[in-house]
Amino acid sequence: MIKTYLGIDVGSISTKGVLITENREIIAHAYLRTQGQPIEAIKNLIKELFKDNKNIEIKGVGTTGSARRLAGVIVGADVIKNEIITHAVAATYFYPETRTIIEIGGQDSKIILLKDSVPVDFAMNTVCAAGTGSFLEHQAIRLGIPIEEFGDYALRAKKAATIAGRCTVFAESDMIHKTQLGIPIEEIIRGLCEAIVRNYLGTVAKGKDIQPLILFQGGVAANIGVKTAFERALGIEVIVPQHFLIMGAIGAAFIAQDYTQKTKSTKFIGENLLDINFKTKTFECRDCTNFCEVIETYKNTQIIDRYGDRCGKWSEKLPNII
């Protein structure tokens, strides 16, 4: 039996999972679409990861991503951590010199500043999601170009068309306007990549001290056009790590390893979770005019998690899982 640790990152667009050994070698990883059904996605992810790895023993589990809480209660996670920390932990393991992490995911983008391998500051997009993965994907579909080839199109262009990057809707009408003028698609895509970078540097990274080494992670890092646009705007090399897609999951696995080595036990419920019926229900509490939406997670018929109430009268009846 190989002792392994499981890291799961359930994001808005994709669900990522990774199995690492005690020596922090990656023995299996998986990447699938969340498709609005996180519970199904988690089950498929577990199936995928365990398919070729029968001879393993899970010693610890960590979850992260926007559905980290749900994923955590379903698989029985030992640690539930937000994306900032997991990304930072994974990045500093592979590149201890990292000072800046640029992370652009499906629906949010963030910047993490580190010093001596410790995150010291971060920022996340607050009022605008222009330039995140789901917008790029939408444009790729609209233009009929596979998202994987988007970056190559941008690289082929000699110059960039000017695209407004402040708002996704305006960016789209700007793109349509430019295509109607007959500007080649390559230049438009390059323009879009530059607009994304401009928007990122102007909003998320506003006023932050960007120092090398710079790591670029998250789904959008697959787009070489955006990476090149970053390098052009910053004038420094930007590194896309080998596992840029699953850095969050890797970080979660590392944190779970550190944690369970202290506690010597795991809450992981095992592979039989595939046979359990998980369900979430919501109801509106009408006891005051706040009308909180309370979210409940059921394991078969038993309630395992409940949150969303402002006053705490529903959630405090269950043990705090975080």
């Binding site: 951590k81 937000n82 994306e83 900032i84 920390i85 410790v118 995150p119 010291v120 500051d121 971060f122 996340m124």
Partner: peptide
């Protein structure tokens, strides 16, 4: 949550 964690780690 992330901010508190960053501050704690620092």
């Amino acid at each position: 949550e992330a901010f508190v964690e960053v501050v704690k780690r620092k």
